[in-house]
């Protein structure tokens, strides 16, 4: 008899929620979380405060490492799933290890989104998705005084505040697509610009970013259709997209995320997707965050027993 073994790919809120729910609903099931991230679950929304020095790294973490052992959850950090064989029910890791599963939960979270026209400048931009990114920002900010913010996702305004608190000179490109997928009307854009300026942000109103070029060790030249300026570093904040490239040739339905039904099941038996990795086949469900992990596993955990 083979044991029940749930493999969860990911280590974010959805993955953790799924693991804990499994522990609750199927206590005899072996649970393994595999994450490319080197660190345990943390609170990404606190990263700007961490960069600003208002929090210690320890305060970012949700729970101690010992928690996983105590709860019988095998947490495998810094290990990347590169392939899934749904027929054989096994995942392959980058270091050529094969792990079998009876149930699989894809909860990989997202990666920073860079709009296609800007991807050519990707090397000049920094993002803030992980603790590792935060450390890179801290290091970079220690030797630069000005930052250009591009994009207006949930993090960008908080990070702008963090930069201002550090005394940095902040530029913010504002156009009608800055807060994509919301399109800003002229009126709202003016209100946003006014608020930013009142806090000391230099608003750059333009229609198009034409060029980024490193001109020295310490500065990047930014050319827009209206301005030309030099800054120390450029931050890109366009939200996240599901990081599911490893599923590309596995036969699973992937659009912007893994397609699932209303029970978060994929078309393969025993395979689920939760969190940012999923995309519903019924669009009217809209976006469901990490609680979906709990919902799914309360069903799937029982069905596996």
């Amino acid at each position: 008899m083979t044991e029940d073994h749930f493999v969860i790919i990911g280590n974010g809120p959805a993955a953790n929620s799924a693991a804990l729910t499994l522990r609750e609903c199927a206590p005899d099931t072996r649970v393994t979380m595999i994450s490319r991230e080197l660190v345990r679950q943390y609170k990404p929304k606190l990263l700007p405060d961490f960069v600003a020095g208002k929090l210690s790294e320890e305060e970012l973490y949700v729970r101690p490492l010992a928690f996983y052992k105590e709860h019988g959850i095998k947490l495998r950090l810094g290990q990347e799933v590169v392939d899934v064989d749904f027929a054989a029910r096994r995942v392959t890791l980058a270091h050529k290890e094969v792990v079998g599963y009876s149930g699989l939960i894809i909860a990989v979270g997202g990666k920073p989104y860079i709009p296609a026209p800007l991807q050519v400048f990707e090397d000049f931009m920094m993002t803030l998705k992980t603790i590792s990114d935060a450390h890179a920002w801290i290091e970079r900010l220690s030797r630069t005084e000005s930052v250009l913010m591009i994009g207006g996702d949930l993090t960008s305004l908080a990070f702008t505040r963090a930069l201002l608190s550090l005394g940095k000179n902040v530029y913010f490109i504002l156009d009608e697509d800055s807060f994509w997928p919301l399109r800003l009307t002229r009126e709202i854009r003016d209100q946003v610009a006014q608020r930013l300026v009142s806090r000391g942000v230099n608003v750059v109103e333009c229609r198009r970013l034409k060029r980024l070029a490193r001109v020295s060790e310490k500065s990047v030249e930014v050319v827009t259709d209206t301005d030309r300026l030099k800054v120390g570093v450029v931050g890109a904040f366009f939200g996240l997209v599901p990081d599911v490239k490893f599923l590309a040739h596995t036969g699973i339905h992937v659009e912007r995320g893994v397609l699932v039904d209303e029970h978060l099941k994929t078309r393969f038996d025993g395979v689920y997707a939760v969190g940012i990795a999923l995309r519903f086949t019924i669009r009217s469900f809209g976006i469901i965050g990490f609680p979906s992990g709990t919902v799914t596993l309360k069903t799937s955990g029982r069905s596996q027993r």
Binding site: R40, K74, L75, R76, T92, H95, E97, V98, V99, G100
Partner: peptide, 14 residues
């Protein structure tokens, strides 16, 4: 390819 039970990476603490 190595199986999970033979893997070094599978045994280390997180």
């Amino acid at each position: 390819y190595v199986r999970e039970r033979d893997s070094l990476a599978a045994r280390v603490e997180p």
